[in-house]
Simulated assay, not measured.
Amino acid sequence: MALLVFDGGVDVKAEARKTLSEIDKKLKLLNKPAIKSIKSEDGDIIDCVDIYKQPAFDHPALRNHTIQMRPNTIFASETSTTKHESSPAMLTQTWQKSGSCPKGTVAIRRVKRKELLKADSLEHFGRDGPRTSFAVNTSKEFIKKNTSNDESKFFECFPAPEHSYANLYAVGNNFIGARGDINLWNPLVESYDEITSAQISLKSGFVENFESIEAGWMLDGYRLTGCINLNCAGFVHTSLVIALGATFTKVSKLHGPQFQINLRIDHDPITNHWWLQICNEVVGYWPAEILQYLKEKASIVAWGGDVYSKYVKPGHPYHTTAYMGSGEAASELFGSANFITNIRIIDDSLQLKYPDPAFFVVDEPNCYSALIHKADCDSEPYFYFGGHPDDKCVYNKK
């Protein structure tokens, strides 16, 4: 006698075959044919893909897009003014030890089947959860209320579902560039579907409907993405040197050497593209064709840390133990806490300057923290953030 097992009338084996078929189809869509492939010692495979066959052109708005290799306008830059000994120019990714990509290609990290198998869904793969934002509300009343001289003031903001953040904000209507040196760490996360990150973001639009472009480092429960992990449909990649989502060779150590990357995001006034540069390497751009509210200017710039988990925010009996930043509290300062420094914006004045006023928000101050600190009156401000949840953070072990 044969034993037949039914699960709600669904043929389980057939469903499994369907899932694997869908995964293979997704992999084929994500991983374009390579002219050359490089196997990295960290297990990554970097594909050198024809620049005109990269995933960006799967976006329907970019079918007839002409690639721009360099921005039309180069805005002013600065030499690091930080007094601490750290390394803002480290740009070595692990895969570069094993080879390089030829001209006419871009370096793209290959997505593996096991990554898709671990994803909550194929549709969700490459995304860090739903977002809403207070920052796109730029009415005069809002700005007046939330840009007090007391930079440590906490204030009410619209919720970001399943996100906990500690950010420094500049609010206005005319940002065309942003800068920051972001301290690199390899923090702990609790499970494969959690993410912790440090980034610069620019936003514009409305609470119900807004756009955001972000760059920084990200770590999830499956792999370290020490540079950036945009996963942004339509981002046009132009670099032979940087593979988005690949690891850096060096990260900071607690009470040890500190490493950081310099990020620049600039608006091109001729094409309306937003360009990303990392340590003077032009990585690529968000093209104007895929933008609406950010086509010309941003209304907010944010610098800081973000934890994405199903177990954040009040109301959960359990809170994630995922670290933000290094996992150390902001008050621990240099060598312990995650930081961003050389913080700059560019507005209609076309001048590179520290945002004034600037204020920070910590979404869950019982769990994570933030602090603006200057060693002395002449020192560069550091924005410190981070921490790891403990018993004070609505936290009970499973």
Rank of each mutant, 00 (worst) to 15 (best):
P55G: 07
E194A: 02
Y165H: 06
I346M: 08
D220H: 11
K28Q: 14
L20D: 15
I23L: 09
L224A: 15
H388I: 15
A215L: 01
I228K: 09
T225D: 06
G172R: 02
D220K: 05
A233F: 02
D7R: 05
V111M: 01
H163S: 01
K28I: 11
G126S: 08
A246V: 06
H267Q: 10
E214H: 05
K353S: 13
V362C: 05
E364C: 13
D356P: 02
K26F: 12
I35Q: 15
D356G: 11
S204D: 12
G325Q: 03
R109G: 13
T79Y: 10
D47K: 06
I182P: 02
L240I: 03
P357T: 05
M69P: 11
Y192E: 06
Y395L: 07
I343D: 02
V241Y: 14
W286H: 05
D11R: 06
D356F: 07
S121Q: 11
E364I: 01
I108K: 08
P60M: 04
S152M: 04
T105K: 03
P381T: 09
K83G: 14
S212Q: 12
V282M: 00
F158N: 13
G305Y: 05
C101W: 02
K295F: 12
H124V: 08
V207S: 00
L263T: 10
Y52R: 14
A14G: 15
I228D: 14
W303K: 05
K114I: 05
L254C: 10
M1G: 15
C157P: 00
G284L: 02
G205Q: 03
Y368C: 01
Q351K: 11
N338L: 00
I176S: 09
A135C: 10
I278W: 04
Q93R: 03
Y311Q: 05
G177L: 10
L188Q: 15
I143D: 04
K353Q: 14
G335W: 01
F75I: 06
Y318N: 07
